[in-house]
Design a binder for these strands. Structure first.
Lengths: 196, 196
DNA sequence: TAGATTGTTAATCGATTAACAATC
DNA sequence: TAGATTGTTAATCGATTAACAATC
């Protein structure tokens, strides 16, 4: 599936767009775009094209961002702060932005009990009894790699659907029900260096 | 090319390893690993395997991380700070870590003139006359998206080989000589949401 | 009806894997 | 020589693209 996100933002209400136009915007071939969409259903009308707002809605539904996605953030170091700022700013700016940070967890007593841009910061120990109530779909792990593995294991045990992990990939656990997406800043640099 | 980085860390001096062992470590098929390596040259010995330290050296050479890679960081908000901490910590810990932040640039007069973990923070206006001297291979852009495009354009004009861009992808410029690698935290979340 | 554009089948391309000759 | 393991050629698989019938 080639990048469909670009499409969403690109047209107003009631507008009809062709796969040709959309493909140009997304930087892919029209035929690829049509094939990708057809995989999920028939969203277009032959001879006409796609209804832009209808298509945007369908794409949101496919990506499961047609609803509020409750999240928790664990670790409020510089990376956690950067991530929280990014998400909360966007949620404040964009109507219907789906991702919401419900609670932040950290170990530092200088941070716990305070708020960051309107989101409460709890002690990491409170996660144990709060996770049931919060019931987050996604958890973001931005703690040091040395302490990340037990936290990730705990999250997997408690039915979190997906983890965005900025720490080192866990070595011991191989969860079946939880998807872990590892983001490795160091690897991004090595990747770039190769193409230098 | 499947992930070769794992291999590097995995063996001591003088050790011989087979593609079977390495593939298991990297989580790929042995035949895939051999094919990838063969693309760059003949590094193994038939009937024996690969010399681990020799292979590690060759991989570093291929990735161009067998030398110091000078970098600059532009933008010292929470994301810039997170990135700087990540790189500098690693450079302090790991012998031969190739990436070095030579200078940081920001607009905030409270930050300019100070140091972060031993790296000087300059005003963004100083970039103009300093870039020639610094001559960085890689530039990391961690400024707000609204102000990123002219900065990226400037970096491309001044022979920076690669840009790691945390801001929005540039729309106007299509550099030919500079590689831009865009990292989109929002897209990572949408990606995860889909697999929920 | 003629023109346009989708959804889908067929053809092409590239990447992964299997098989094996080379060789330690 | 027999066993092991690479580098490479051939076969397989999947993904991309082209072609076209369906239909607005």
């Amino acid at each position: 599936m080639a990048c469909l996100r670009e499409i969403e933002a690109s047209q107003g209400k009631g507008q009809i767009v062709s796969s040709e136009t959309l493909a140009a915007l997304a930087g892919v071939k029209p035929t690829q775009l049509r094939k990708d969409l057809a995989y999920f259903g028939e969203f277009g009308r032959r001879g006409l094209g796609y209804d832009a707002s209808e298509l945007a809605f369908e794409i949101k539904r496919i990506l499961k961002i047609d609803r509020i996605v409750p999240m928790i953030l664990i670790g409020m170091g510089s990376l956690g702060t950067a991530f929280a700022r990014f998400i909360i700013t966007r949620a404040n700016l964009e109507k219907d932005y789906p991702f919401r940070i419900q609670a932040i967890f950290d170990k530092d007593p200088h941070k716990t009990g305070t708020e960051f841009m309107g989101v409460r910061i709890y002690h990491i120990d409170d996660l144990k009894h709060m996770i049931q109530t919060l019931n987050p779909i996604i958890a973001v792990v931005a703690v040091p790699s040395q302490v990340s593995e037990p936290i990730i294991a705990f999250l997997c045990d408690h039915e979190v659907k997906a983890i965005l992990n900025f720490a080192a990939p866990p070595t011991k656990i191989k969860p079946t029900k939880t998807i872990i997406h590892n983001v490795d800043l160091g690897a991004e640099l090595e990747f770039l260096s190769y193409y230098t």
